[in-house]
Computed example of a mutant assay.
Amino acid sequence: MNMIYRDATPADLPAIDTLFRASFVATFGHLYQPRDLADFLAGFTPEAWAEEFAEPDLRFQLAEDEQGLAGFAKTSNLTLPAETGARTYELRQLYLDERAKGSGAAQALLDWALDQGRARGAEEMWLSVYVDNHRARRFYERNGFEDRGPYAFMVGAHADEDRLMRRML
C-alpha cells in the first residue's frame, strides 16, 4: 500500500469526520447503548471540527492512499488530566481505516506526533487508550509508552475505563 502523508487543510475535515465515525463505531460501537453512542457522536459536528482545526496548537496529519483518507493523527497541548510538572504534548486521536491497519501508517502517524512534541519542546507525550483495546495498547507499549493510571472517557452517559499512557521524549 503506497501511503502519502501530509498536513490537513480545512477541506479535509469532512473526510476526517467520516473516517473517525466509521472507525470509532466499528471498533467500539458495540460497547454502548444506542443513545450514549448517538450523544457522543453528536459532539462531532462540522463546526466542532472547524473550531478544533482553528486552535493554534492543534495539528492534524493525514495518511492517504489511492482510495483516499486512510488514517489521521491529531495532536495538541495537553488536555488530559495527567499529573506532571514536565512540558507536555498530547496525541489526541489516531484513527485508521480498516484497510490501513498493518500498513505502517499507524507507526508513521505516531512518529509524526512524537516529532511534533519534540519540536514544541515537550519532555513527555501523553495519550489515552481504551483499557480493552489490546492492539492499540500493545502498539503504544512497543513505542515506549507506559501506563500511568485510569481515566474515565465519557461516551454519552457511559464512562469507559481508559488508560493514561506517557512516553518520555
Rank of each mutant, 00 (worst) to 15 (best):
A70Y: 02
G71S: 09
F72C: 05
F72I: 01
A73Q: 04
A73H: 06
K74V: 09
T75V: 15
T79I: 13
T79N: 11
T79M: 11
L80Q: 07
L80M: 09
L80F: 11
P81N: 11
E83S: 13
T84Q: 08
G85A: 13
A86P: 00
A86S: 07
R87L: 14
R87G: 10
T88R: 10
Y89G: 15
Y89L: 10
E90F: 06
E90N: 11
R92T: 12
R92N: 15
Q93K: 13
L96Q: 06
D97F: 06
R99V: 01
R99F: 03
A100M: 13
A100N: 13
K101D: 04
G102M: 07
S103M: 03
G104R: 11
G104C: 11
Q107V: 02
Q107N: 09
A108Y: 01
A108C: 09
L109G: 04
L109V: 05
L110R: 08
L110P: 08
D111F: 00
W112N: 08
W112L: 03
Q116I: 05
A119T: 04
G121S: 08
A122W: 09
A122Q: 09
E123T: 03
E123S: 06
E124T: 05
E124Y: 12
M125F: 01
W126F: 05
L127F: 06
Y130C: 00
V131W: 10
V131N: 10
V131E: 14
D132Y: 10
D132W: 07
N133E: 04
N133F: 00
H134D: 15
R135K: 14
R135A: 15
A136D: 03
A136N: 01
R138C: 06
F139V: 02
F139C: 07
Y140L: 00
E141W: 01
E146S: 14
E146N: 13
E146Q: 15
